[in-house]
Design a protein around this nucleic acid. Structure first.
Lengths: 234, 234
DNA sequence: TTAAGATGTTTGTTATAACAAACACCAAAA
DNA sequence: TTTTGGTGTTTGTTATAACAAACATCTTAA
């Protein structure tokens, strides 16, 4: 009886959490937007109770900031906060890359090679939208290879925090790269089981992207938002 | 008008969150205990709504695990999970020690020296209860010196996850140490601005404590709970 | 004696109403 | 014109009731 998928009645607040999470990660909410419970509830077609649970969870994860009067606002990263996040990401993702090089397996390596090939073809085709998806999958395939769930979970949290900023700037950054990139080098290092090189390449990948983002900050340390359609809580 | 303290009406769910957090950290809940909303609400003397918010937040932070039927249960760390947590802690706290050595200031160093002196006197007096408080303060004084709030916040999260296990085993471990310890060495390294040594000592402090804990695990990888009074949800 | 089914209880989920603090808007006085 | 005071609205917080799924318990039939 494995033909039938298990019916799982997921709670409403779980669905709301997933939707908000994806929207944040995709940058569909303008930084600084205040999310009101009743507005979100109306968008979802539920009462405010499940929405409140979802927002509480996001705030606890640090994905949403809490403004005055405990209002949930979409975080607006300063250049300083981005630099801090970069330090934490380098420590976590560098360590994950080390462990991945140590505990590599053939199945995972095949998936990484496939993902990398897809990424390169998407760059050539200038399909930068779906490139982001595969870029994320590539990184987390490495991190999952570390075999340390808590590490992967923590890294995911950091990506969520800088997601709204990162997700729409990377495409423009990617096209600046000429042929050789740190992703290819990182995969080669992991295949060779070279933990030092794997960490070095991942850290370089993170810091170079962060440096590019920091160069876009204005005099106040605010990261300007590029011109793109954004969605606010209606 | 600075004589009067500002009256701030903290929400009930915030108070409940703080109480549960402290109880977890102090190990007053036996691992594996299922926390029911109505029982907790009765203990707090409130309705289940604020308690639900507090539990939701703790689950989102990874401090509480969610069992079947979304029940919140006090996590029961396996030896494997403890090892994973140790890897993450070494990456994060090692990096924080590096930054602290780089951005050290005299005021913070004075506080560290004072804390260390208190710790040593408490060990001599065999007052292991309050030693834990100062031990925690010493570590986080270092991490705060890094000047990276997100890093400190993430480290706090990791301490909360292994808090119930760590808090009652360290005292027995401390008395095994002869005179020289990694805390003294870490402080000396930070004073000297030696980032490498600071990271090395902090990592050694973490791993040695973790190794001691791992030696207490039974054949199933479960960390046995020492004989001590525990509190369950009434 | 054992197993299957019915039943009552427990427990997380959701909707709703009431509440209080904060905000916005407007009018009146200086 | 500016400031002060009042008023209505917005918004997070809390309590409560109803609901459904899961669990435990007991009864009944083989």
């Amino acid at each position: 009886m494995t033909a039938l998928k298990r019916i799982e009645r997921e709670p409403l607040w779980d669905l709301a959490h997933a939707q908000l999470r994806d929207a944040l990660l995709a940058g569909r909410f303008a930084p600084g937007t205040v999310l009101t419970l009743r507005a979100l509830a109306e968008s979802f077609g539920t009462s405010i109770t499940p929405v409140r649970d979802a927002v509480t969870r996001l705030v606890a994860q640090g994905v949403l900031q809490q403004g005055p009067r405990n209002a949930a606002i979409v975080p607006q990263l300063t250049a300083r906060e981005l630099a801090d996040l970069t330090v934490v990401r380098c420590a976590l993702e560098g360590q994950a890359a080390r462990e991945a090089a140590r505990r590599r397996n053939t199945a995972g390596l095949e998936r990484l090679k496939s993902l990398l090939a897809t990424m390169q073809s998407l760059i050539s085709a200038k399909n930068l939208e779906s490139y982001l998806d595969y870029h994320r999958q590539f990184h987390f395939e490495i991190y999952a290879m570390s075999g340390i769930p808590i590490l992967v979970e923590t890294i995911e949290n950091m990506w969520l925090r800088c997601g709204p900023v990162l997700s729409f700037v990377i495409p423009e950054y990617v096209v600046l790269l000429k042929g050789w990139d740190h992703h290819t080098a990182a995969l080669k290092a992991i295949v060779a089981g070279d933990a030092d090189a794997a960490e070095r390449e991942i850290v370089a990948d993170i810091t170079e992207a962060a440096d590019y983002l920091a160069s876009l900050a204005d005099a106040n340390g605010q990261l300007r938002r590029p011109l793109r359609e954004t969605m606010v809580a209606s």
